[in-house]
Design a protein around this nucleic acid. Sequence first.
RNA 1: GGAAGGUUGGCCGAGUGGUUUAAGGCACCGGUCUUGAAAACCGGCAGAGGUGCAAGCCUCUCGUGAGUUCGAAUCUCACACCUUCCGCCA
Length: 429
Amino acid sequence: MLDIQLLRKDLSAAIAGLKRRGFDFDEAAFRSFEAERKRLQSRTEELQAKRNSLSKQVGILKGKGEDASAVLAEGAGLGEELKSNESALAANQENLNAFLRVIPNIPRPEVPEGASSDDNVEVRRWGTPRTFDFAVKDHVDVGAGIGLDFDTGAKLAGARFPVMKGGIARLHRALAQFMLATQTEEHGYTEVYVPYMVTGECADGVSSLAKFEDQLFKIEGRDLYLIPTAEYPVTNFVRDSIVEAKDLPLKFAAHSPCFRSEAGSHGKDTRGMIRNHQFDKVEIVQIVRPEDAAAAHEELTGHAEAILRKLELPYRVMLLCTGDTGFSSAKTYDIEVWLPGQNAYREISSCSNFEAFQARRMQARYRNEKGKIEPVNTINGSGLAVGRSLVAVLENYQNADGSVTVPKALVPYMGGATVIQAGSPSARG
RNA sequence: GGAAGGUUGGCCGAGUGGUUUAAGGCACCGGUCUUGAAAACCGGCAGAGGUGCAAGCCUCUCGUGAGUUCGAAUCUCACACCUUCCGCCA
């Protein structure tokens, strides 16, 4: 959430920043919360101080064996007034907190203003899309020949749950292994294995549970949600803690399944593996000092790009405009991979700098060199989405005979196979 | 599913109703000493909020939430989590 001190000191700047992303800050509501808070807080603290001092006097008198009834009489009625003030203050703080927790982050100044993905800005492009001398198939048709099976998935769990058999399943695993190995061995991330469910408190630490709960699968009867990304468990490693400056940055990479309800996306990307309820992803997360956040964000984005370069898949990097930037993010780059089957670039990674927004929500702090406690900054990105990477490989590496060439970088992870032959689901090539 | 024990500051740990203003230790920071370092000694050192130009002052927080009391880390109740043992089990 936003820094309450910032709102108190420079409210107009915060309002202007939020307006850039199309968020109307309810200034009147905030001012009224604050005025009420001040009144209740000073009265409550005054009463508490009085109670404490009277109780102390009683203690001293009783310790000496003297009569305390005069002091006790002085405090008559105090308890009731204190109680009503305390509960009013608690209610006020709860309301203020709920108000603050649904306010999105303020975009960084260099984030271009815009309403939708149409206003995103391309910042760079890598690779040249391949030209085909045969009719290009999309990944569903290519996959059908090597073990990609939506019918069985639908029988088991419904739409948006693919099943993979044989060569394509192996290719999928190879992609995940390759990504995790690259991030840990070449980019200095520590591999972590994490729970695939988190509590509501953790979910509200990275985003707003109140706003986005319908995007998550909830475990019935329990305060647990299936993770929509490993960002949820991994970023929460530092929740409610104070880390030492010397231990930063923390860099973690996790391979996990991701579960998304896709509420509201009915009819969108219904074909294939672009948008599923379950997909795998290698997530990279950095916990950094505030002064290092911007550079770390650029670095992390490069770590995601490195995967596509090694796979020799053409891509472009988009700087999301204010209207397309996620709730918690101050600045986001989307990496879009070229998909010949769609004749378009499609998102395969999203790399965000959350600055202190998530850290404040989850009380993740560090002790700086001067001994001062302040929130850490958090950054994360997909490095990469495995399912969509598989889509990209199938479409970019398809051959006229229905087989799929294995990208050079993946051959070691495929037991040396250089091609996946169409035909038998168990074909290894 | 059954039983027992536990949860105190960055970490360990004392504390069973009132000078607890949470002992002590570790870690950390500063200093003395030293060629430098270590050791030793001296001092500092929880977080959050409010208020103030500042020094400071005030409030809250001992797993969470209620309750008893003039007063709760301490007593009562509920819940969460952790540990150990038994049973079942991938």
